[in-house]
Computed example of a mutant assay.
Amino acid sequence: MTDYLNTPQGRRIAYHLTDGTGPAVVFCGGFKSDMQGTKAVYLEDWARKSGRAFLRFDYSGHGESDGAFTDGCIGDWFEDCCAALGLLAGKLVLVGSSMGGWISLQVARAMPERMAGLVTIAAAPDFTEDSMWAGFSDAQKAEIHSAGQVALPSEYGEPYIITKKLIEEGRDRLVLRDPLPLPFPVRFLQGTADADVDMSVALRLLEHAEGPDMRLTLVDGADHRFSDETCLSLITNSVEEVLGRVG
């Protein structure tokens, strides 16, 4: 059954919380994704079988949470994540998929005392600036400024409506321009056939971040969904490895 919480900013967020031992594992989903996705549900099943506390949730404007997607921005969804983390006590292992990887890195920067470890899946740090804005044509940039939004085609369904707010607010959330200490076990996972997040992003993140226990695993032929049986097993194995290294 879905539960709901009200964030300090007044947004109503949907979540599923599985009781168990800590450190709790938290799944942070991707851009226009939701907590019913394959990876989130697979991790929840793993957590139940393992007796591990687990949380999955929907950002505002996503899934079962209130709000319109086009009203949101990276900062809103970071705040939603922080509010959801308030449901849990003690240290946490975050599992961030795509945009959720960027948000997880922001959490690690804002509240390192809560972090026991981190696993990212096709992490997309700074994508609003380095992928979207940098990839826009002059006409698309002009449309953003004049109309306040632009439509981008998506292989996942309807076009993505990218707002001026999303682009401009995202510039306040960048993590690859300043030092990024990650003083806990970190596992970055990336597919070589990912058409949405290039392998170079994972390499840049590994090179940029600073930490005593960071590893990047590249999976030959894996795409952005990272949801076949091999990839799903790698995710849970990586979470278990991080949990095993928590002091």
Rank of each mutant, 00 (worst) to 15 (best):
D3M: 07
N6L: 14
N6I: 13
I13V: 13
Y15T: 02
D19Y: 01
T21M: 03
G22C: 08
G22V: 09
V25H: 03
C28R: 01
G29M: 06
G29S: 13
G30Y: 01
F31K: 02
Q36H: 15
Q36D: 15
Y42F: 15
W46M: 14
W46R: 15
R48W: 03
R48P: 03
S50K: 11
G51W: 04
F54D: 01
F54W: 09
R56F: 10
F57D: 04
S60Y: 00
G63Y: 02
S65G: 11
D66Q: 13
D66M: 08
D66H: 09
G67H: 05
I74E: 02
G75Y: 02
D76F: 03
W77S: 06
E79A: 15
D80V: 07
C82T: 11
C82E: 14
C82V: 15
A83S: 14
G86I: 05
L87F: 06
L88R: 07
S97C: 11
M99A: 02
G101A: 05
I103D: 04
I103K: 00
S104C: 10
S104E: 03
L105W: 02
R109I: 03
T120C: 03
A122Y: 00
A124K: 04
D126K: 05
W133H: 13
A134Y: 06
S137I: 10
A142Y: 04
I144P: 03
A147M: 10
G148I: 07
P153F: 05
E155I: 07
E155M: 08
G157N: 03
G157Q: 04
G157I: 04
Y160S: 02
T163N: 05
K164H: 15
K164G: 01
K165C: 11
L166A: 11
G170S: 12
D172V: 01
L176I: 11
L176T: 13
L176P: 11
D178C: 02
L180M: 13
L182H: 06
R187T: 13
T192Q: 04
D194C: 10
S200N: 01
S200V: 12
V201A: 08
L203S: 03
L203Y: 10
A209T: 15
E210T: 15
D213G: 09
D213A: 15
M214T: 12
D220V: 12
G221C: 08
A222L: 02
S227H: 07
T230E: 05
C231P: 07
L234P: 08
T236W: 11
V239F: 06
E240S: 14
G244K: 09
